[in-house]
Design a protein around this nucleic acid. Structure first.
Length: 593
RNA sequence: GUGCCCGUAGCUCAGUUGGAUAGAGCGUCGGACUUCGAAUCCGCAGGUCACAGGUUCGAAUCCUGUCGGGCAUACCA
């Protein structure tokens, strides 16, 4: 609709110039927007104000010239007026809006979809938590944001791939192995200290216990099974592993380094599997799980370093290799290979991001916790150094989540291993409530997540407010069938074709509802453009509010047959849009609650 | 010290490519169910948009500075 108005304005400007009412045919960037206040019309443009300097005329004079040249054969515009410093406000005729109901019924689950992405390949990488422990609430927010952004972009015509980067290489994995190994040692009665830098959580004990009890044959079965996975749980010298020997005893007979290695691989695989399960329960599915180790195995890390060396952006100093990130806007240069010969994480990150673009993505989006913001500059540097444009890479920084219970902060400490996991949260409050709350606020702001509020089935909890609309409408439609008003589900969409019937929808609340419905595609587009899913949340709240207000004031099923049909048609289009919007956020739309 | 994010109603936050009288939820108080689902609605009250300058027809929005909060500042991962 916005575009329709824009074209009318552009045509009018051209005509006004032709008629000599305007002095210039130049049209500056103008805006068509839906004003905040209803008495400012359905749409408003600042055309006259932004044109003042090129036209060398007063804004109001320009507005008058424009209005006198407007052609509107369809009579979409009921009236237009000049207001304030030179705004032109358009009030649309009701009949301009009714066709949207038809469009919604026709397009159904496609309504809101667009092609602004033009099929461009976009990768959204998110969560990517180290497989050294279960996901916690912060990962949950990142998961909800990344998943929703991916959905919104896909709905907007991008070819989206969702990816999880597994940090399955390096020291934290060895630490993981050591942690499990030491717990096994404790289990089998061998005195050993448990250092502070090891993972303290109880899940380490559980894994240790499990691995310790595993028979050789069971272990072999597990490793075989995981061979087809992308994560490498490791090659084991299988020849000397007795099927009937417990793994604990077996490991005891091995050199410690090897035992730690086996523990690391077993634990990482186990934890990763847990992460995958938790994400599935949270409604998040990735297209690809990408292993950091694979970058080393395939030589891509070395290739990336060599490539940058040949481009002259990597140099040697103090026995280490440095990437000239400072010349790309970073505070200082960064080490990629330490003087002990080991690569830093940055090295594999460079290789990974190079690899992403080599896979053909036009655009790469990373979702990170806000505590990683210091890495933006250096990854940007690597993107530019590899010949890509900085605009092709976006980082979404997700601020921290404060977990509360009844207003009181829930103590969490990674060091002691005492933290509430995502799984516990999903188990307690449900996937829908958790996701909806995660997406309720801009990820630029910290978020208070109160478990008690998230559990409440009251108006304090926004997810029910919106889902209730969907269920309520489902209830109304069911009722209409029971009363014989409808005999076939197709009846409703048949009505949507009848402008004559829809014209019975004259209540202000009805027109307001239709206008909100009609704006959904623009809302999705904006959300995709700024990569902010909470815009969909805000939209859902206003749509739900408009519906509830309407419902409490007017009867959908009433004594007038045709009006009833028109209203059923309207509310079922509300239901469809609620469904589509919730789906973008990964929240279900129940028929009954 | 430096960099990034934030500062809007009592609380939690929308408002972000600059627009007109700054919005919503919660909380307070008062109303609405023998009628389609009250997990709902209606009404009242609540503001120096942290502060001070600047940019212009116009600033919560952009720029500079100050104050306050969070995060980050490794040849750690």
């Amino acid at each position: 609709m916005k575009n329709v108005i824009k074209n009318i304005v552009l045509d009018a400007a051209g005509l006004a110039f032709k008629k000599g009412l305007l002095t210039s045919s130049v049209i500056p960037d103008m805006e068509i927007e839906a004003p905040r206040h209803e008495n400012h019309g359905d749409f408003s443009t600042n055309f006259a104000m932004v044109s003042a300097s090129v036209q060398k005329m007063a804004p109001r004079k320009i507005a008058e010239a424009l209005l006198s040249s407007i052609e509107d054969p369809e009579r979409i515009i009921e009236r237009a007026e000049i207001a304030g410093p030179g705004f032109i406000n358009f009030f649309l005729a009701p009949k301009a809006w009714y066709p949207f109901i038809k469009i919604i019924h026709q397009q159904d689950e496609e309504f809101g979809k667009s092609d602004i992405g033009q099929g461009k390949k976009v990768q959204v990488e998110f969560v990517s938590a180290n497989p050294t422990g279960p996901l916690h609430i912060g990962h949950g927010r990142g998961a909800a944001v990344g998943d929703a952004v991916g959905n919104i972009l896909a709905f907007s015509g991008f070819d989206v791939q969702k990816e999880y980067y597994i940090n399955d290489s390096g020291r934290q994995i060895r630490t993981l192995g050591r942690s499990v190994w030491l717990r096994i040692c404790q289990l089998i009665g061998r005195e050993s200290e448990f250092p502070e830098d090891c993972y303290q959580g109880d899940y380490i004990r559980d894994i240790a216990k499990e691995l310790n009890q595993l028979m050789g044959s069971e272990y072999l079965a597990l490793t075989c099974k995981s061979q087809d996975k992308q994560t490498d749980v490791g090659q084991l010298n299988k020849t000397d592993l007795e099927p009937t020997v417990k793994m604990g005893e077996y490991l005891l007979g091995k050199p410690e380094a090897e035992a730690v290695d086996i523990c690391a691989k077993y634990a990482a695989d186990k934890i990763l599997q847990g992460i995958k399960d938790d994400l599935v329960d949270f409604g998040v599915e990735f297209d690809r799980w990408f292993s950091e180790q694979s970058l080393y195995d395939s030589g891509r890390v070395q290739d990336a370093i060599t490539e940058f060396q040949s481009k002259g952006v990597i140099y040697e100093k103090d026995g280490a290799l440095w990437f000239k990130t400072e010349s790309f806007g970073d505070e200082k240069d960064r080490v990629v290979v330490r003087n002990n010969g080991l690569t830093t994480y940055f090295a594999s990150d460079i290789a990974y991001h190079t690899e992403k673009f080599n896979r053909g993505f036009d655009r790469v989006i990373d979702v990170w916790g806000a505590d990683h913001h210091g890495y933006i500059n250096r990854i940007n540097a690597s993107i530019e150094a590899s010949g890509r444009k900085r605009e092709q890479f976006n980082v979404i920084l997700v601020q921290l989540v404060n977990l509360l219970r009844g207003g009181q902060p829930v103590a969490m400490s990674t060091r002691s291993g005492e933290f509430v996991t995502l799984k516990e949260i999903v188990d307690e409050v449900g996937k829908d409530a958790a996701r909806f709350i995660f997406l309720s606020r801009s990820y630029d702001s910290g978020l208070d997540f109160d478990l008690e509020v998230a559990k409440q089935q009251t108006s304090e909890n926004p997810v029910y407010y919106v889902q209730y609309v969907h269920a309520r409408i489902a209830g109304i439609v069911t009722k209409a069938f029971e009363q014989g008003i409808l005999s076939d589900p197709a009846d409703i969409s048949t009505v949507s074709n009848s402008l004559q019937t829809l014209q019975l929808l004259v209540e202000p609340e009805e027109l307001k509802l239709i206008k909100i419905l009609a704006s959904f595609p623009e809302v999705v587009e904006k959300s995709a453009f700024v990569l902010h899913p909470h815009i969909i949340f805000t939209y859902l709240m206003s749509l739900a509010s408009a519906f509830h207000g309407y419902y409490n004031r007017h009867k959908v099923i009433n004594e007038h047959q045709e009006l009833t049909l028109a209203r059923l048609c309207l509310v079922s289009s509300v239901k469809k849009v609620i469904y589509n919007a919730l789906k973008l956020l990964g929240v279900s739309a129940p028929e009954r609650m």
